[in-house]
Design a protein around this nucleic acid. Structure first.
Lengths: 192, 192
DNA sequence: CGGGAGCGTTCGGTAAACTGAACGGTACGT
DNA sequence: ACGTACCGTTCAGTTTACCGAACGCTCCCG
């Protein structure tokens, strides 16, 4: 037997539960606040988020409205964040005048309030940090200079070695974790 | 007062009702057949289609599964069918060797079972025909040679004069209607 | 002209979605 | 330490979504 407690809830409810929690957290809303904003009781919301309820269209619609998303965002599998890894071994280096340059990412900063921020981070050994989501549209780029490191969106985090570069959307929770040794990384924050 | 019978049903339910009916009809399913295929009672389906019910996610999911669509197709406003009209007055004609050619539509018939069929139709005067949906992906093109004519998807039908050309998706119900005089049209059926 | 088969709608009864209130747990200011 | 304020969960009661069965209807075949 797998579980004796509940009677095996359908997939769509699990999906809804995960989506709801994710969207709510991303908006810094407590379950109680959301309840107030939607005229849905805390009890119902709690039940839905735990995957133990089978809400009606009306409830779903109220939720989608309060979270400012379409109904599809609540009910369908969110597309996996596009993660692209460029390994150090496969890097194209350009040596010139005694210096070696390596192109990583180019962002065209056109009309609107787009911005690029570069920061060098020194991370202590054995450190794991869950980071809160950044504003929608924000991406992060990480270049590992020294040490090892696990980084990426919560479910898609990847182990990185010196020279590796990873970029991922940072408007969902993400993690930065070091191993036995400290790490130095170059961090690029790309605000759209 | 607006209506004394029922207590003003929410928009999303009306939308669902319309979508469900449209999708069911397009698949040539009776309400009873759909009930059999989904393990949902006729009563419930009837209630939903009339906009008087507030179904649960589980019910919606079963429906979407049986109709082979995503949940979004059930719950969200369907995009208006893309209708493009090229008026006779604005037509680009190519005269050559005494004959005038006018490019209307070019379909690349590549790999799969794509096909193009051209038919000349003679329509009697004062004739209105509701046509059943053709297989999914099928489009129709109509070139009016002589007479006037109202044609297009049910909600987007347009009045056409000689020389006008219209093309629209024909996997939803569409109409062909003539006025006081008979009409000659060139019909192109584009099966994807 | 029956009558049988299909349709979509209407009607009580039951299971369950939703509610409001109470609960235990954590964080913070006095 | 204690009270306060908030969090998310749990529980009994009410509302209602869903079901099965009956209904009226149209169509078609004997």
């Amino acid at each position: 037997m797998v579980d004796h407690a509940s009677t095996e809830r359908p997939v769509v409810q699990q999906l809804l539960a995960a989506n709801l929690r994710r969207l709510r957290i991303a908006r810094h809303l407590s379950l109680s606040e959301l309840a107030r904003g939607t005229a849905i009781s805390k009890a119902t919301l709690s039940s839905i988020e735990s995957g133990n309820s089978n809400p009606t269209v009306e409830t779903l619609d109220a939720l989608a409205g309060a979270l400012r998303v379409g109904l599809a965002e609540l009910l369908e599998q969110p597309p996996l964040p596009q993660v692209r890894v460029q390994r150090a071994a496969q890097a194209r280096r350009q040596a010139r005048d005694g210096t070696s340059t390596r192109p990583l990412e180019r962002f065209v900063a056109s009309a609107a309030g787009e911005a690029i921020t570069l920061t060098e981070l020194e991370l202590a050994a054995g450190d794991r940090r869950e980071h809160a989501p950044l504003p929608p549209g924000t991406r992060l780029g990480l270049f590992v200079i020294e040490g090892r490191l696990i980084a990426g969106p919560d479910e898609s985090s990847t182990e990185l070695s010196p020279g590796d570069y990873i970029t991922f959307p940072a408007d969902t929770p993400y993690v930065l974790e070091t191993g036995r040794r400290p790490a130095r990384v170059l961090l690029a924050e790309l605000t759209s």
